Computed example of a mutant assay.
Amino acid sequence: MTSHRVGPADLARLTETRAREPQRVQQAWDERTLRPLLPDDGRLLLVAADHPARGALGVGPEPMAMASRSDLLDRLVTALERPGVDGVLGTPDVLEDLLLLGALEGKVVVGSMNRGGLQGASWELDDRFTAYTAEAVGRLGLDGGKMLLRVALDDAGSVRTLEACARAVTELADASVMAMLEPFWSVVEDGRVRNLLDADSMVRAVQVASGLGATSAHTWLKLPVVDDLARVMDATTLPTLLLGGDPDGAPAETYAAWEQALDLPSVRGLVVGRALLYPREGDVAAAVDVAADLVHGGTS
């Protein structure tokens, strides 16, 4: 289990700081200890915490698992303290809480940008940029900006999202920081968005995402582990991080799939949220340590 590194008193202090000294957020960004994007082995393990901003609070059978900010922060701080964890992906509210807690020193920080496609909304595929802008990512010294890109050919919201992502890729490259694209080929069924996770659909999504923006020099991909992943990865030379998804299978099977996928040349690591922060066994540190060993081979 987590060891309660963040509790009610910490949340009270965060709220007091936000109420009385909001300028400390900017000061903390300015004073944060930075690090190179990649460690010596050229691989990354990032923890993802941008789900709540889309209203996606569920983990497995628990629809409100991520609703408690104190619990989420406790799990994130536990994960970030483990050796081999390179950094975190999140929205401004979560990252600023971690920043004020001192948990982002010497860590890779990637800001989540388009969170307007709320889970279950009629406009879900018109995924507006409602969090970080490319300008803010560069100004604050973040290491990159992440975008979700779901392409459904029968929904006009997709083309607006495509255009916005292309613009952000160009602007992030102008700032010389990573543009992390998470693409899916999607369909709308009974009013709900479903991502197609077969290899052909993922290849199409990868090809479309790879061509966005005026340059791909700083573009990375964030992709799910799917069957025939080698064929998907053969569709791109862009460095790729694999996402963990909702932990619905046996942990041993999940870890085995990650281990096999990490052997592919374009794969440079993992970006995992719920599978590490809310593991079935309940031990965040243990789950994170397994992932860190898979990514870094016990060298970090």
Rank of each mutant, 00 (worst) to 15 (best):
Met1Ala: 15
Thr2Tyr: 03
Arg18His: 12
Arg18Glu: 11
Arg24His: 06
Gln27Pro: 00
Ala28Cys: 02
Pro39Glu: 01
Pro39Ile: 02
Gly42Asp: 07
Arg43His: 10
Leu45Trp: 08
Leu45Ser: 08
Ala48Met: 11
Ala53Phe: 00
Leu57Phe: 14
Val59Ile: 08
Gly60Val: 02
Ala65Pro: 00
Met66Asp: 03
Ala67Gln: 13
Ser68Asp: 15
Asp71Arg: 14
Asp74Met: 09
Arg75Asn: 08
Val77Cys: 13
Val85Thr: 14
Val88Glu: 04
Leu99Gln: 07
Glu105Val: 00
Gly106Leu: 09
Val109Lys: 12
Ser112Leu: 10
Ser112Val: 09
Arg115Ile: 01
Trp123Pro: 01
Glu124Trp: 07
Asp126Lys: 11
Asp126Leu: 14
Asp127Trp: 04
Ala131Ile: 01
Tyr132Asn: 05
Glu135Pro: 00
Arg139Thr: 13
Arg139Gln: 14
Leu142His: 12
Gly145Met: 12
Met147Cys: 15
Glu163Pro: 02
Ala164Cys: 08
Cys165Ser: 14
Ala168Glu: 06
Ala168Lys: 00
Val169Tyr: 09
Glu171Ser: 11
Leu172Met: 12
Asp174Arg: 15
Met178Arg: 11
Leu181Arg: 00
Val187Pro: 02
Val187Lys: 10
Glu189Gly: 02
Val193Met: 03
Arg194Leu: 09
Leu196Asp: 02
Ala199Asn: 02
Met202Pro: 03
Arg204Thr: 08
Ala205Ile: 05
Gln207Tyr: 02
Gly213Lys: 10
Thr215Cys: 05
His218Gln: 15
Leu223Asn: 05
Asp227Ser: 12
Leu229Val: 07
Leu229Pro: 11
Ala235Gln: 04
Thr236Trp: 11
Thr237Pro: 00
Pro239Ser: 07
Thr240Tyr: 06
Leu241Tyr: 03
Gly245Pro: 03
Ala250Met: 09
Glu253Ser: 11
Tyr255His: 14
Ser266Leu: 04
Val271Gly: 15
Val272Ala: 14
Leu277Lys: 05
Asp283Ala: 13
Val284Tyr: 07
Val290His: 11
Ala292Glu: 07
Leu294Pro: 08
